[in-house]
Simulated scan of single mutants.
Amino acid sequence: MAGWLLASVLGLGLVWSHASAEGRAATPPSRLPEHFLRTPGTWTLFVLLHPRCPCSRATLTELAKLLDRDGARVATRVFVWAPRQAPPGFERAELWARAESLPGVEVVADVDGAVARELGVSTSGQVVLYSPDGVARFSGGITPARGHEGDSAGARAIRDLLHAEAPSTGTAPVFGCALQTPSTSFR
């Protein structure tokens, strides 16, 4: 009996250790690069995803909640990593379809991770928010742990920024898979 209890506790510890392991933080440009179109008076929200990252399902669930409340304030683009050497349609998996189903969201293939590199992003589920004047205001995740839905510091920070009279900046840990994987892992 004691052996099973010990094994259970150790197993749960390992699972939680993985779930709470933060991804590498992004280093986005302080100003929105000029080639990204900006709608006057509207915030710009970028979400970057690996098409096969199961952790990012929770990111899209939390994004839906955020957009349900504040979608009219933000122009949202979801960039899905699409390596050139992957089989055709690699990026158009479940996450692509889920992102496309969100009202007002534009889903774009991030060919060879060009946008991710430009925004300094290396973890799936990373969110970057730019104010209407093009200033980076938030960088991080919007989930409380890998693959977990629910209230998080990142989602709260974005909601606060969208409603602030004088927005500051915010960050939060991002939880997800590495955005780019070796070409041998395409499935």
Rank of each mutant, 00 (worst) to 15 (best):
G113A: 04
T143F: 08
L63I: 02
E100T: 05
A75E: 14
I158K: 05
F175K: 01
W81H: 12
P144F: 07
V15S: 08
E100R: 15
G13S: 10
E149F: 00
T143A: 11
H148C: 02
V115M: 09
G23I: 04
P29N: 04
S56P: 04
L119Y: 02
A72H: 12
H148P: 00
R52I: 07
P182F: 09
G176N: 04
H163C: 00
G134N: 06
R38H: 08
E149G: 10
L45Y: 06
G140D: 08
R24S: 09
V80M: 07
G3D: 13
C177H: 04
A93K: 09
L14G: 12
G13K: 04
R159Y: 02
G170A: 13
A26P: 04
A82R: 06
V9D: 05
A155L: 15
A157K: 11
S20C: 01
E149D: 15
E94M: 14
A64Y: 01
A155F: 05
L95W: 03
E106S: 15
L119I: 03
L14M: 11
F79N: 00
S131Q: 11
A19Q: 12
I142S: 08
G140Q: 10
S131W: 09
A64L: 01
E100F: 01
D160F: 02
L37M: 06
L66I: 00
W81C: 07
T143P: 06
M1N: 09
A166Q: 15
G141W: 02
A64M: 00
A178P: 06
S185I: 03
T44W: 12
G150P: 08
M1E: 08
S139Y: 04
D110Q: 03
C55F: 12
W16S: 00
Q85Y: 10
L12Y: 10
S17Q: 12
A172V: 03
V127P: 04
T123A: 08
L95M: 08
R117G: 13
V78H: 05
G170Y: 03
W96D: 00
S30K: 14
V115A: 05
R77I: 05
V127C: 13
L37E: 15
R92H: 09
S122R: 13
E62R: 02
A99K: 01
H148F: 14
T42W: 08
E118Q: 14
A21H: 03
G125S: 05
R57L: 12
P132N: 06
A82S: 13
P29S: 08
A172G: 06
P83R: 09
L161A: 10
S8A: 15
L49M: 07
E165P: 00
V15D: 09
V128T: 13
E34A: 15
S152D: 03
S30E: 15
L60H: 01
V115N: 04
T171I: 12
L162Q: 07
S101M: 09
L49F: 06
V9T: 14
V80K: 10
D110V: 01
V111Q: 05
L6Y: 11
V78N: 03
E100V: 02
C177N: 07
T181S: 15
G89T: 07
